[in-house]
């Protein structure tokens, strides 16, 4: 079961699950360590992370950022990502937690 899949599943506090590319999610050192197949974490076995502190709407933005970052990795003029006003403090805390 410990095989490394292309996609991993992120599950929010309120039960929403998001399937994202492993390569994108690995930009977060926290998720990378969790999902490291050589590690002994349960998450690595299931390829699933349950993020207990994150509501679904925040996790959705986080996943959006994963792809935004993947897309703009080498871009010259990086467009600003749209951050909803009401979410920015929660997103700030989420990004602090995920170290992205």
């Amino acid at each position: 079961m410990a095989s490394e899949t292309d996609y991993v599943t992120l599950i929010s506090k309120d039960g929403f699950s998001y399937v994202v590319q492993r390569s994108s999610a690995r930009i977060s050192p926290v998720l990378k360590r969790m999902l490291d197949p050589t590690g002994a974490f349960l998450e690595a076995k299931d390829n699933t992370c349950i993020l207990q502190d994150m509501p679904g709407i925040v996790l959705e933005k986080v996943c959006e950022y994963f792809y935004y970052n993947e897309k703009n990795k080498d871009a010259r003029d990086v467009p600003e990502m749209d951050i909803p006003t009401e979410l920015c403090l929660e997103l700030l805390m989420a990004s602090d937690y995920l170290d992205i």
Binding site: S23, R26, I27, V62, Y65, Y68, N69, E70, N72, K73, D74, A75, R76, V78, E80, M81, I83, T85, L87, C88, L89, L91, L92, A94, S95, D96, L98, I100
Partner: peptide
């Protein structure tokens, strides 16, 4: 991966929005 990215971090984006 992504260590040489020029994209701003989510932290920076959220902080800027804040």
């Amino acid at each position: 991966s992504g260590s040489a990215s020029t994209a701003p971090s989510l932290f920076e984006l959220a902080l800027h929005s804040l």
